[in-house]
Design a protein around this nucleic acid. Sequence first.
DNA 1: TTAGATTAAGTAATATTATTTCAATATTAT
DNA 2: ATAATATTGAAATAATATTACTTAATCTAA
Lengths: 296, 296
Amino acid sequence: MGFGQILSRIENVIPKLTQSEQKVARFVLSVPEEVMFMSVQEMASRSLSSSASVVRFCRSLGLKGFPELKVALSADLAQDQKSGYYDLNKNENTTDLVDKILSNAVQSLRDTVGLLDTKMIEKTAHDLYNAPAIFAYGVGASALVAEDIAQKWLRLGKNVYALSDIHVLTMSMANAPKGSVFIGISYSAATKEVVQLMKFAKKMGLVTISFTGFGKSELSELSDYNLFTSLAPEAKVRSAATGSKHSQFFIVDVLYYVCASIDIETSLDKIQRTSDAIQDLKQFDTTDRSNREKND
Amino acid sequence: MGFGQILSRIENVIPKLTQSEQKVARFVLSVPEEVMFMSVQEMASRSLSSSASVVRFCRSLGLKGFPELKVALSADLAQDQKSGYYDLNKNENTTDLVDKILSNAVQSLRDTVGLLDTKMIEKTAHDLYNAPAIFAYGVGASALVAEDIAQKWLRLGKNVYALSDIHVLTMSMANAPKGSVFIGISYSAATKEVVQLMKFAKKMGLVTISFTGFGKSELSELSDYNLFTSLAPEAKVRSAATGSKHSQFFIVDVLYYVCASIDIETSLDKIQRTSDAIQDLKQFDTTDRSNREKND
DNA sequence: TTAGATTAAGTAATATTATTTCAATATTAT
DNA sequence: ATAATATTGAAATAATATTACTTAATCTAA
């Protein structure tokens, strides 16, 4: 591709341009996203220059002509999509709504990556790798995250419990072997039950991990390791924890990969066994004649 | 908000286009990076159609004209550079790993948005809004999606069931009132239990929705509405359905917002009641003296 | 089946947009 | 000051995009 960052290239060449080309340049820098849809004549009048100058400006950038400028701008703007947080309005058309939800999700993920402490991730993954048992707990949307953790580490052959019944979970932890891990999940960091269990886990000598929204909290203070997700401005409708859920799952993904990487051969082997098991299961279907005949 | 993902949008609309427009569409998909620098006439001759068909094709995509197609393509291609699908290597340092997982997640979401049929979303949301009861079912990772659906529509005051016990779920559906909805979730579209339930739901006259990876399948054919997620190249370690899970949750988010928007005042009111309920619950804590004294 | 209606698609006319030419004006060097 | 040079925009031209119109093809209903 010829044109990399056209915007910064414009900034660089400005001093070398003639006056009227500079006018064009500054105009492009001021509203690049509008320029993409303008004609030369419109550009000329709005930048107080002439169509000839617009074309000359494009040539000065090394482009073949004005249409190429549009294409170059589009590529540039698409790259550093800032994708910030957007609020959802009342009578929004569905397409815009989808774009905004996407943007919010992406931004939330990016912010979470920004907060990620890789050393902390590695240590946490290591402790999980060595844990004889893993307990994960969260309520509401966070219960889904706990369940995701269970499904993932199950595939790595771990003893992992994401029990929703707090009494049963407490009893399980009471007899947990040394080195076992408790993961408490609460985006708000304020869920009473999670804090309770975290305190109990500490008392039992378990390794403790918290998944919370960014910031100091009783929960994060209590835990040995804390993995933060970004704090998104959560609006009313959003309150079912949309952006934050993506971030929480993302952290689980990361932890899972890092943990599996510690001994990738063994991990892949164990994952394969779980896949095979599902395949095998079908073989025992008593109603599917063709299948049975093939296999016995 | 701009036009996202023009390439997958093209793939999506191809079936609905006229023959000569399809020729244009396929040509664009084959050499998008050349199209950015072509004229309408060149496009017409190279795609073995006419300039009129080229313009009509652009209109069919919702664009104003051909120049906008160039701009859209440029944006799309620039994005792909930034976040494609990456394979995870063996001795990767954690920072790179995190970047790749992020990139994969983002790409998966973007591709899913590209495949999204907004009309389908709207119709689906409407049927969910009017449903006297909603049943969601998935196994493994898809069970989490079903549970997410349950939690979200619960907040909108719906009768929604994400039972993991297939017998209990079947029995619930047997007496479901007219207009009830069944949502079958299977990324592979091949999960036997989901297909079974889908067939049963149809027999019972329920409105049926499938959440599957993109493409024709028995499951998608059976259902009244199908909402596709992008098909990511899933590697071994990834097999715990990482990228696709984000996409599935994303679609749930979109459906939820669109559904809530149908009557936003009522929806907000109901959501508020669920939040208040959780707050209220604390008040009944028998152990917390200070709290009790404040409230009774 | 067939007349009439509808849709699709390409050609040619037109409108729009981009580029070049050129004369006027400004700037610089001597 | 004046010739040489550079810059500029209006207007001409070239190019490109869009529309209008014709014809062919497909569908529909009697």
